[in-house]
């Protein structure tokens, strides 16, 4: 099966391990991952500083490249930006015609058939992981964390992580802060606020006796790893899935020494 996906800029550095694990999973499951040809940056949080048209253009260009298809989006912030742009294009004919005009500069066409945007979490619920679980794997309790952009304002399936991880053999510990905020793109890294937020999230996981926290967003993972105090194992949910399927940690971007 072919899957069109939007890797996003973080795939190249920050979330290299996320993408390694996604690719490892895909090859294990015999999915053909095909990156959106010639995709561009979605503008991250910086588009909030620029006129509305800029952010819409960056998203529209990707939407035009994927028109008519199903587009899998792996980073939550990209997911948010693409969803938001798509809603605006659907509801606001003025922005729609403006974007159509701008895209003409690049010889692209904004077809009325916008792509169906799918988060990685929801996409993976289509797969029954219990069938692929490695016989040697012994699951350990994990808590899950969705963060903001998979929860609001365009909510995805907020049981998706629970579904796939428990199918893969992990007892999933219910938590209450799974859709709270990790501090995201708070512009100051020396702020105690972000430390408090991350500490609180990890506190709950520890309080409820989880042995690890499964996340779905590059920024969440980075924040939790850097500011989570005391440290607590945080991994992409795809890495946990890979371990359950028996994929070697190094293929999943998990450093040797751990």
């Amino acid at each position: 099966m072919k899957v069109l996906y939007y890797p996003g800029c973080s795939s190249e550095h920050l979330a290299r391990d996320f993408y390694l694990s996604i690719e490892a999973l895909a090859s294990f499951l015999a999915l053909e991952l095909e990156p959106l040809p010639d995709w561009n940056c979605c503008g991250a949080r910086e588009i909030e500083e620029a006129p509305e048209g800029v952010g819409l253009f960056l998203a529209s260009r990707n939407l035009a490249l994927a028109s008519g298809k199903e587009l899998l989006v792996t980073c939550s912030l990209c997911f948010h930006n693409l969803k938001r742009a798509q809603n605006i294009l659907r509801e606001n004919p003025i922005w729609r015609s403006r974007m159509a005009e701008v895209l003409k500069d690049e010889g692209l066409e904004l077809s009325p058939d916008l792509p169906r945007i799918l988060s990685l979490t929801e996409f993976l619920t289509r797969i029954d992981f219990s069938r692929f679980r490695s016989p040697h794997f012994r699951g350990f309790p994990v808590a899950v964390y969705y963060g903001c952009f998979l929860s609001r304002p365009y909510p995805t399936d907020l049981q998706a992580l629970e579904k796939v991880l428990s199918a893969a053999g992990y007892p999933v510990i219910p938590t209450t802060l799974k859709t709270h905020c990790c501090g995201g793109h708070l512009p100051r890294t020396d702020s105690p606020v972000i430390k408090n937020l991350c500490r609180r999230l990890l506190f709950e996981a520890r309080q409820k006796n989880a042995s690890g926290l499964a996340v779905a967003c590059p920024v969440c993972k980075l924040n939790l790893e850097i500011y989570g105090d005391p440290p607590f194992p945080v991994r992409y949910f795809t890495q946990y899935l890979g371990l359950a399927l028996g994929i070697s940690p190094s293929w999943l971007g998990i450093p040797e020494e751990e």
């Binding site: 209450t176 802060l177 408090n196 500490r199 609180r200 506190f203 309080q207």
Partner: peptide, 11 residues
């Protein structure tokens, strides 16, 4: 209202 404290000393 949450059982997870903001300050660890409020556990």
């Amino acid at each position: 209202i949450s059982e997870v404290p903001l300050n660890p000393e409020d556990e």
